[in-house]
Simulated assay, not measured.
Amino acid sequence: MFGYPIETVYLFTLVISGSLTFLYILLSDVLDGIFDAFDHPLLSPQLFLSFFTVLSATGYLLERYTAAASYFIGLISAGVALIVVLLLHFFVFVPLRSAESSLNYAQEDLEGCKAKVIITVPADGFGEILIQRASGAISKPAKSLKNEEIPLEAEVIVVSMENGVAVVAKRDPYYIS
């Protein structure tokens, strides 16, 4: 192919696709903005680069260590690459994409949450609360709704969020929720 043995073509493709993959890892934030027009998950650059890397690596190894026909090796390599890329997509990239979006929260999402006071909230000042969520714990500055002191370790409810500060009220211990 192109005047070179097919083994050499596979090796050059492996080196080029491996180098491009490394560059993509380094510049992924910038390149994601460029490739954002192609927002289909199966058309992502990391899947194309993975496909060519696995295809060329499998092709090179099979050409080097087996006596099978080149067209048969090409088909096997393409099949292996397709399977690996699909596994990568469904078991790595899709869960990462959904996990990335599930860690974000809006300030309004915290309203109505139960929290624990970790720094006493004075009557006319600010303390700090800790909100336990499925994605982790969030600490926020807090002030009292009724301008009353709320002691350390008390359970509170976030009534509202005002400029990143939680307005909290003491949680009624007799109310079951």
Rank of each mutant, 00 (worst) to 15 (best):
E162P: 10
I157W: 07
A142I: 08
N163C: 13
L152Y: 08
N163Y: 13
I131R: 01
K146V: 08
V156N: 01
P151D: 09
L130D: 13
L145Q: 03
E128N: 14
I157M: 08
A142T: 05
E128W: 11
G136H: 02
E149H: 10
L152S: 05
A142F: 09
S144I: 03
S144Q: 01
E162M: 13
G127K: 01
E153K: 06
V159A: 11
A142G: 05
E153H: 10
L145F: 02
R133P: 06
N163A: 13
A137H: 14
P151G: 08
Q132A: 10
V156C: 01
S160P: 10
F126N: 15
E162N: 12
N163W: 11
G127L: 06
S139F: 10
E153S: 09
V159R: 05
V159K: 09
R133S: 09
S135V: 11
Q132Y: 09
V156F: 03
L145Y: 06
G164N: 08
R133L: 11
M161D: 04
I129F: 03
F126W: 15
P141G: 11
E153T: 06
G136S: 05
V158T: 03
S135G: 13
N163I: 10
S160D: 04
E148R: 07
E149G: 12
K140P: 14
I150Q: 05
K146R: 11
P141T: 10
K143L: 12
Q132K: 12
L152D: 04
K146W: 09
E155F: 09
K143H: 12
K143N: 14
V158Y: 00
K140N: 15
I131P: 07
A142D: 02
